[in-house]
Amino acid sequence: MKLTRDQVKHVARLADLPLTDEEEEKYSQTISKILDYVEQLNQVDTSDVEPTFNVTGQNNVFREDTTDACLSQEEVLSNAPKKKNDMFETKGVFEKE
C-alpha cells in the first residue's frame, strides 16, 4: 500500500502536524513500508472473531459521587505558555489568525 505525498499532506493536516517537503517525502516512504508490512493481517480469517478493545473485562466502574480536592487555579495554569486574567490565552476561534 503506497501512501502518496498528497495523502501524507492530507493526513498531516488532519493531525495538525506541520511538515517540511523533505519530511513529506520521508514519511511517504517509511509509512508505505509499514503499511506493506501490516497487509499480512489480510491473511488472517477474522470473519467470526469479535474485536478486542479492552482486556481487563471491567466495565461500568463507578466511584462515589462526592467532591474531592483538586488542583488550584494557580497550579493548573502553572505550565501555560500564555496566560491572561488567570486564564489560558488562546487564539480566537472566529477571528482569522
Partner: peptide, 26 residues
C-alpha cells in the same frame, strides 16, 4: 500520529483498525 490518523480515517477504519482489533482477539 500520522499512521494512526490514516488507519482511523474515513474509508480505512474497517480495513485497518477493526481488522487489527480482531487479530488482537486471536
Amino acid at each position: 500520529i500520522m499512521l494512526g490518523t490514516y488507519s482511523l480515517s474515513s474509508g480505512y477504519y474497517d480495513d485497518y483498525y477493526a481488522k487489527a482489533a480482531r487479530v488482537r482477539t486471536l
